[in-house]
């Protein structure tokens, strides 16, 4: 698919308005790559002037930082900031709440000051401004929305994803623990990369059970890590009966 790479833009004297920060999950994880493609396809349909870093992108450092490796985080941060500032990047969009949080809140004191959008914010923006039109009716679905911790509690973005779902006319069933009280999927704080400590249950199972109890066709989330955890949960509990989708994939179905 058609994607501009910022180094090439730079060589041609172009300066794209937005940088799409793909993130490591969005670049390498099989499931997350589909989310990346869905988002890029929407950006292209809406004629958004954007580029990606491509091979120059590197881990944002979020997992390293949450795992206690502040050295590695700051190494990553300073290298990324140098590249971003070099290309004179001002606005960044990302599909990953962890990258979002780091780029928006934690790069600032290290010299990286950007206007950062999470894709749910950005999608709402381009729908509201008329750049993106929703055509196909997919309102027969019944879904629940799982708030990613770093989007919801971490950065108080609760309404944008829900507004998007409402735009689609889809029946949204809230879980008992939602918004501020949302229950973690179990991946944050670098848990994604290690076995959980021993306990009575895995966190993603607890959360998937709660979602399933809403009697829905799909679990909607807005974070690649949440997607993995909930997909694993569904595979164990209701394989093949419930979809786990990123919000951008829903939107992509209706444009």
């Amino acid at each position: 698919m058609e994607v501009k790479i910022i180094s090439e833009c730079n060589a041609n004297g172009e300066n794209p308005e937005y940088l799409f920060w793909v993130g490591s999950a969005g670049s390498f994880d099989v499931r997350s790559k589909k989310i990346t493609r869905a988002f890029v396809s929407i950006l292209n349909k809406a004629n958004i002037d954007f580029a990606v870093l491509g091979k120059e992108e590197s881990s944002s450092g979020d997992v390293a930082k949450r795992a206690g490796n502040e050295f590695l985080f700051q190494m990553q941060a300073l290298m990324n900031i140098e590249i971003l500032n070099n290309y004179n990047v001002k606005k960044i969009i990302t599909t990953c709440p962890h990258s979002y949080n780091v780029l928006k809140n934690e790069y600032k004191t290290l010299g990286g000051d950007y206007h950062v959008y999470h894709h749910t914010e950005f999608l709402l923006k381009i729908i509201n401004s008329g750049k993106l039109k929703l055509n196909k009716d997919i309102s027969n679905k019944k879904v629940t929305y799982h708030d990613p911790c770093y989007l919801g509690r971490g950065n108080s973005i609760y309404d944008e994803p829900r507004k998007l779902i409402r735009f689609l006319g889809i029946n949204l069933v809230e879980m008992k623990r939602s918004k501020r009280k949302s229950f973690c999927c179990g991946a944050g704080g670098a848990q994604m990369f290690k076995e959980p400590e021993k306990g009575s249950k895995d966190i993603n199972i607890e959360r998937t059970e709660e979602a399933i109890s809403c009697n829905i066709d799909a679990i909607i989330t807005a974070c690649p890590f949440c997607n993995t955890m909930m997909s694993d949960g569904v595979k164990l509990l209701k394989d093949g009966e419930i979809d786990v989708l990123d919000i951008v994939e829903l939107i992509n179905e209706s444009v």
Partner: peptide, 21 residues
């Protein structure tokens, strides 16, 4: 992350593979 700039063992050369998959 130190070697490939990603938490998984993937080469940074493959960062754009999603584009053509």
């Amino acid at each position: 992350i130190e070697n490939n700039g990603a938490p998984w063992q993937f080469s940074s050369d493959d960062r754009l593979n999603w584009k053509d998959e």
